[in-house]
Design a protein around this nucleic acid. Structure first.
Lengths: 154, 154
DNA sequence: GTCAGTTAGTTAGCCTAACTAAGTATAATG
DNA sequence: CATTATACTTAGTTAGGCTAACTAACTGAC
């Protein structure tokens, strides 16, 4: 199966980056439609996801992760809070910080949205052979590893 | 290399979808910063990309591909046009349609933005072993194939 | 302890990009 | 030929991004 291996799928970083880039765009574009049911915008859903999986964290750190400025995150958190999906609290050590925490409802809503996305993506993956699926899974794992290096700050 | 294969990287579609989803999000989040230099917003850059690679095409079709409504695309195309990146023309057969075509400048600007993105992504890929890069490239190719099936309409 | 400077978040005001509703021009159809 | 359908535009609204300017709270140097 990996006969002359290097012929078609080049190892050349730029060529691989090209395919990867296109695939990432199309994957996310495909799953995007599943989010409509959640009733949440993309920006809110994404921020909620970070809060649910990243535990309680300061608003500023959340803004940094989401690549937006603090005022933008203030508005997003306000929206999530008024929907009862997150809760704010003052930091214990430093009372300037606003800790953002997911509520039980927030976790449930996010989990449902996540499941819808993944199920939609899974239908695409079912078109692949088991060997290809294994390859996609392993490639994604390797990428996540490579991307987690050099994380700005935690 | 594929010894007991099924142990770690599961073939189960939902599990693979999970890793793939996370990887796609992080890949695009990482390359996003490269777009700032282009001076174009994400929405305009994405639309320009479709026009450059998808040849001249009707505004409505462009809106469909970008998953936005016609008025939104009218505004985006107006912006790109005033920057001299695309040109509009009436359809020959049907003069209601507005054909959107990339200008030489539009192609050049997009190509530069694209190169910046891919070079950034390539630096991430350089952390992988050649075997992993080959795997990522092949996985992306398989995905692109699976995603291109069932395209709504051309 | 208090004053200067820094840091975290909010508020105000603006811009872009999304939407819907309604209008215009051209095609297609009974 | 009148009517309906289609492709796009215009008008007006909302969400989400930004910067600037502010308040509250922490930190260090007297």
């Amino acid at each position: 199966m990996t006969g002359k291996a290097t012929s078609r799928p080049s190892v050349e970083p730029l060529a691989v980056a090209d395919r990867l880039h296109s695939a990432a765009i199309r994957v996310l574009r495909r799953v995007r439609v599943a989010d409509e049911e959640s009733g949440l915008s993309a920006a809110r859903l994404s921020a909620l996801s970070v809060v649910v999986y990243g535990g309680p964290l300061p608003l500023g750190r959340l803004a940094e992760i989401e690549q937006v400025r603090a005022p933008t995150m203030t508005a997003l958190v306000r929206g999530l809070e008024s929907d009862g999906l997150v809760r704010r609290s003052a930091g214990r050590r430093d009372r300037r910080v606003v800790l953002v925490t997911a509520t039980a409802r927030g976790r449930r809503v996010l989990e449902q949205a996540r499941r819808r996305r993944l199920e939609l993506l899974a239908t695409v993956l079912e078109r692949l052979t088991p060997a290809e699926r294994r390859q996609v899974g392993a490639a994604a794992a390797a990428l996540l590893e490579a991307l987690s290096i050099e994380r700005p700050r935690a």
